[in-house]
Design a protein around this nucleic acid. Structure first.
Lengths: 123, 123
DNA sequence: TCTATATTTCGATAATACTAGAAATAACGT
DNA sequence: ACGTTATTTCTAGTATTATCGAAATATAGA
């Protein structure tokens, strides 16, 4: 959403997508929304119920929902006059996949991964 | 870092901390930095090496490193004129802990968690 | 102390995000 | 068609973040 600076062009696509999701979740209200929807399971929740639970102004909430939807973390289906929001698990799986695969010391001993860790780059 | 709006006061502390970490990781450059440091293991990397790898201007990089340090995702130790950065795994563990515990359909069948899922709130 | 190296801080600018009221839209029931 | 309810879009003000050159700081070595 921000202009990509010269020093960072054409880098890892998956990293970009993951960063976008993390940024979306990196706001307390949006993280709370997402948690609420995960707890709600496949039924999800209509926007009104979310608003009720979080006590946020409708326009602010709508703004955050759009953000979450844009990165694929939630989906919506219309039901009459209400819009039902549902967490999209596959997207979160991809995010967690990236983090555990690329950003984690899976079997970390205290002090970090061992010297012969497969992901450990040469010095 | 932003003023907390009226509708969201005194909410879940862990959620706030997690959101701060996700926001820090939610920037492509910072996510790339963090990944680099995880790959580097407990040795970490001096700032100069990171700069070399990412080809970012020094001041921009420093700004991002400070951000990551502030939320506890990395730590630094000084070594002569160089500053060595190391990923802080416990912080990431807490983040992933929150996400898997609160924001995940652990044993999700396609379509989301079952109706009797323990975390599923009442309608 | 002088110089070189490594990195941060400062300062300015531009871009983006957040918040929220008000107006607009969409679907439903009557 | 009209009113009602649910939600979004518009709009605007404010706050925050990103970028990066230039100057400052810190350390080590000669």
């Amino acid at each position: 959403m921000r202009a990509t600076p010269r020093y960072r062009r054409g880098v890892d696509e998956e990293l970009e997508r993951t960063a976008a999701c993390l940024e979306a979740l990196g706001h307390p209200t949006r993280l709370a929304i997402y948690r609420l929807l995960v707890r709600a399971g496949s039924d999800g929740r209509p926007v009104g119920k979310i608003q009720e639970a979080l006590a946020a102004p409708a326009s602010t909430l709508s703004h955050h929902l759009k953000h979450l939807e844009m990165v694929g973390l939630i989906v919506r289906r219309r039901e009459g006059t209400t819009h039902r929001c549902v967490a999209s698990f596959p997207t979160m799986d991809q995010v967690l996949g990236f983090l555990t695969r690329e950003c984690c010391a899976e079997d970390a001993a205290p002090g970090g991964p061992p010297a012969d860790h497969p992901r450990r780059a040469a010095d």
